[in-house]
Every structure is written in structure tokens, then in C-alpha cells.
Design a protein around this nucleic acid. Structure first.
Length: 294
DNA sequence: AGAGTAGCCTGTAAGC
DNA sequence: TGCTTACAGGCTACTC
């Protein structure tokens, strides 16, 4: 699913391909009535027409395209949203919810099986992004910053990692990965983490996200060998990422922990599946020696 | 105010 | 075999 590494990969691909291009036509499918936010679809389509893309950035899981005339095109992929860059004449993929013709013979296609994706056209993106917490890959995001956030929270650490107001851009997959790297059980109350554990978690978050980014994202739901698979994240050219091959926790239920060989377990937490190693990520501190009985 | 959860959405897979 | 149900999950809106 698109989290920080997947959205950042998309932002980088777009920066290399569509900056300087002009949108000559925008059309949103009538079967995606929730795609455009806060304005009628016709206003959105007319507002994008003729706009030049001047820059591409990312905040949390939001993709931001800076347009001329001070406008911003903001996009959130949610669960199954993908952006593809294709020649106008290329055959359609299934589930195209909107298309944006460019002035070079290509078009951007927003493909979204589950229709959770959202877009805005605005002269001020700040309200859309207002609740987001710090960017985990910024230098300003330190172990101390994370410790300040966690010390007030009584809920499970994994629920906090999923809270975009606590840390922007971490979702279910990278939260499981970060907790595994840190050796922390997903159910541990956030405020119960020691200073050392918060340090390990900080390192785990950065490590999980940077590895995902280096591998151009995780594509866990796509059928192997399918050229353009649309059940999960694909990049601008339609290819899957590679990070699913390197995951240590997410989606590995029943398979051996890469550290100790114990079977990875799955549990329900905060209405999400949480994957963890019961040996490397114990809920309670293990006794140093087995208790003697009798 | 923090915590917990229904609902949005559709294809796949498990269960009867 | 064919139908029903559960599941995947980012985020908002809602309740307690």
C-alpha cells in the first residue's frame, strides 16, 4: 500500500518526467464521485486545464504538484491509488478513475481499484496538511522528538506509529517493519518504552523507510509476473517495487523470523493486522533464567 | 482530549 | 458448484 516510500518514489519519478509540462485536458470518471474534494468535478477539471506543472513534492503520504498561477494539485493514493504515465494512445488499464492529458502526447492516469483516492486543487494546501506530524526522514526528527510524542500516549505503540499526527507517512507495513527492527512488541503501551527502546524504534523507522525507498517501494498485493498489476503499489511506469522481497515482518505470518527462526505471528490491533516475532519482540521482559519449579 | 471503532470500496479467498 | 462472509487498510467522523 502506498506509504511514505511509495509516495516519495512517485514524486521522484514525476519530478523527472512531468515538470514543465502543461495539462491540456483533465477528465474525472463519473464512477469516482469522491475523488475530487471540496469542489465540483467540473470546476476541478476546468481549473487544471492549461496549468503548467512547476514542481513536485511530498508531505506525509500526500503528493503535491506545484502549478503556475500559485495553484497546487494535491493527491492522496490511500489504499489502491496509482499514477501511471502513458502515451495517450496506449490501451487503457482497468480502474482508471481520472486522466490528465499533457502537452507532450502523454497522459497521467489515476488508477484506483477501491476508489479511496482523493485529489484537491487549491491555492493553499496548508489546511489539507495541517494535522500532519514530523517527516520521519528529516534531520529534525530525532529520538528525542519521538520520545516527546510517545511519553503522553497510553495506547499501543503501533497505533501511535499509524497516527499521522504523530509521525507523517508511516503506515501499516512500515510500522510492522520498524517495530521488528527495534525488537518491540506492537502492543506495548507507547509511554512504557524506555529511552533505549525509543532510540531503537527511531532507528527502526528510519531504516525501514530508507530501505523501502531504496527498493522503489513495496508491492505486496501484486500477482507475480503480471506486467501491470493494480492491486497494490506500482511506480509511474507500471512496474512493481522490490521491497516486498526484503520485508522482515509484514505479510510473513508463519514464516521464520530472519533473526531467530521463530514463526512470525499475526494479530489484530487497531483494526489492522500486526505481524511480529514473539521471540524478538516480547510483550513482557523475559526472565534471564527459566524459573525453577518444585 | 485521548482512545476506540464504523464506514468508505472492491476483488479475492475461505467456508458452508 | 455457487452463494455468503471475511479480509485487506488510510483516513474521517463519530461516540465514550
Amino acid at each position: 500500500m502506498p506509504e511514505l516510500p511509495e509516495v516519495e518514489t512517485l514524486a521522484r519519478d514525476l519530478r523527472a518526467t512531468v515538470v514543465g509540462r502543461k495539462v491540456t485536458k483533465a477528465s474525472v470518471s463519473p464512477d469516482a464521485p469522491r475523488l475530487v474534494q471540496e469542489m465540483p468535478v467540473e470546476v476541478f477539471e476546468a481549473g487544471l486545464r492549461g496549468r503548467r506543472i512547476e514542481g513536485v513534492s511530498r508531505r506525509g503520504k500526500y503528493l503535491m504538484l506545484a502549478l503556475d498561477k500559485g495553484m497546487w494539485w494535491v493527491l492522496h493514493r490511500r489504499m489502491s491509488g496509482n499514477v501511471l504515465l502513458r502515451p495517450v494512445k496506449a490501451p487503457d488499464e482497468p480502474y482508471i478513475r481520472a486522466r490528465f492529458r499533457l502537452d507532450d502526447g502523454n497522459e497521467l492516469r489515476f488508477v484506483d481499484l477501491r476508489k479511496f483516492g482523493t485529489m484537491w486543487l487549491t491555492d493553499d494546501p496548508a489546511p489539507i496538511l495541517a494535522k500532519l506530524g514530523p517527516e520521519p526522514l528529516d534531520e529534525a526528527f530525532t529520538g528525542d522528538v519521538l520520545r516527546e510524542t510517545l511519553k503522553k500516549r497510553t495506547t499501543a505503540i503501533k497505533a501511535v506509529l499509524l497516527d499521522q499526527a504523530a509521525i507523517a507517512g508511516v503506515g501499516n507495513l512500515y510500522a510492522d517493519e520498524a517495530l521488528h527492527y527495534a525488537g518491540i512488541h506492537p502492543k506495548r503501551p507507547a509511554k512504557s518504552l524506555t529511552k533505549a527502546e525509543v532510540g531503537h524504534l527511531h532507528e527502526g523507522i528510519v531504516r525501514a523507510l530508507e530501505q523501502g525507498l531504496a527498493n522503489l517501494g513495496s508491492s505486496v498485493g501484486n500477482a507475480a509476473g503480471e506486467e501491470v498489476s493494480l492491486r497494490d503499489h506500482v511506480n509511474l511506469n507500471g512496474e512493481s517495487g522490490k521491497n516486498q522481497e526484503y520485508l522482515v515482518a509484514y505479510g510473513r505470518e508463519g514464516r521464520p523470523c530472519r533473526t531467530c527462526g521463530t514463526a512470525i505471528e499475526r494479530m489484530k490491533l487497531a483494526q489492522r493486522s500486526a505481524h511480529f516475532c514473539p521471540q524478538c519482540q516480547p510483550l513482557r521482559r523475559r526472565r534471564k533464567r527459566a524459573a525453577k519449579r518444585g
